[in-house]
Design a protein around this nucleic acid. Structure first.
Lengths: 247, 247
DNA sequence: CGCACAGTTGAGACTCATCAAACCACGTGG
DNA sequence: CCACGTGGTTTGATGAGTCTCAACTGTGCG
């Protein structure tokens, strides 16, 4: 979760944040990956780092959007609560995902954004879009790719986690959680049952039953309430099996 | 479906398509709503009209994307078919929605796009994004708003049509279909039961049962297989009721 | 230690899927 | 024009999967 990477020393930066950006681990994925150091300097002051503890919220639905955020570490969930107080988790965002882009268009946020784990984000202020359009029009394309990525994620979430029997949905969720791990084999963040139920549209009891069952089957091993190791071979096999018995 | 609107006469257009754009009914919603006639002239040749019959497909998933499309009339569905041949409808696009924008970023299409009704679309070629970036950078913001709108639609689809008991999902689908009608009280396009099942993740039988039941309850009256009149007061009341019995 | 809250497990009810059959709309060919 | 076939729709009977309600267990914290 810390940023220990030491890059080769860069020329001195006038602004400390520019240095952070230059050294950022996710830089190659990030919006400014294509920028050289001089350009980074120009947009320096606009970007701020932010850290959140699990459960803290980054912004709330319908708030006036002040900034978009790129996730540098951790997992953030986007969720909505409808009139009747039912919560639905729309999707998860991990490293190098950008959320809250509606703010850049002057719109209010379309969902709540809440930290699932410890989280670090870069704050991209509302004005950034205008600055980019003036100074670095070539980056507008990167910006649009981010929108497209969010759309792809939304579509994938819908097709993977909203269809089929409960067991398969849980398995696919675990697969998705494995994408957020830093390395293979590393413990993954395990959502609370209530969160699972809001992601997969099932009850907490069903989520609990299925997770317990998968533990017994050796698909995962929990280390604490919020952390578990996935056994990918067993997980993938279980997914194949659950596809089999359709036929 | 025709374009009878007669606008005050404009100066003669060099290009017939520019005239079509200028007179387009959806112009105020559309990408070029903000352009004056001179600017329209400049991008004239890039835009082509296209008509589709119900069931015809506009593009297919993984095809190399040649163009994005703005829907001028009719309803288009975006759908995916997974490895096992199960189809899932991701969302519907109606007048003034833009689909297939991934093509403008050089990506292949992320889903199939199929006409549900008779459809008219404007074809926005892949090169348009570059042209705009050069000639009309101010329009890039409009373009991004389109991405954001697609994202909002995706989120709404997930929260409205993928949650709760089957009956409520059907009711919400009907509500959404009413948005695609030209005027209030006009017959709406009624999906085939198989399409409903792919939208709402249920079986055709369940969809059929619920639609029949709603007919008996006077929520809708079918005129033909693919067309019905919705009785909005009854529909909205039914939705309120289905919310009630949660408590 | 004991409290509060999350997770687990069980029993029964209910929704929805499955399988099967009848019905209807529509196009084709006699 | 009607008989017929095809494919979508409706309806019924049954069972699997999931929800609901309830009790119990485990975890973390004061």
């Amino acid at each position: 979760m810390s940023l220990p990477d030491v890059l080769p020393l860069q020329p001195a930066y006038y602004n400390p944040q520019a240095r952070v950006c230059a050294e950022c681990r996710v830089r190659r994925f990030a919006l400014f990956g294509a920028l050289d150091e001089a350009a980074l300097e120009r947009i320096h002051g606009h970007i701020a780092e932010l850290r959140l503890a699990p459960g803290e919220s980054l912004y709330r639905m319908q708030e006036a959007g002040l900034a978009a955020y790129t996730v540098r570490a951790g997992v953030v969930r986007l969720e909505r609560t409808n009139e009747r107080g039912e919560r639905r988790i729309l999707r998860l965002a991990g490293r190098s995902d950008t959320i809250g882009m509606e703010a850049m268009l002057g719109q209010s946020y379309a969902a709540d954004a809440v930290a699932c784990t410890e989280v670090q984000v870069c704050c991209l202020p509302r004005s950034l879009l205008d600055e980019l359009a003036n100074d670095q029009p070539a980056l507008m394309r990167d910006m649009m790719k981010r929108w497209q990525r969010a759309l792809d994620d939304a579509d994938e979430w819908l097709t993977e986690l909203c269809t089929g029997p409960a067991r398969r949905r849980v398995l696919r969720l675990l697969l998705k959680l494995s994408e957020f791990a830093e390395h293979d084999g590393e413990p993954v963040w395990l959502p609370a049952r209530q969160e699972m139920s809001a992601m997969l549209d099932m009850t907490v009891e069903t989520a609990s039953r299925l997770i317990s069952q998968l533990k017994r089957e050796g698909v995962l091993t929990a280390h604490s309430q919020r952390s578990a190791t996935l056994h990918m071979d067993a997980l993938l096999q279980a997914l194949r099996d659950s596809a089999q018995d359709e036929a």
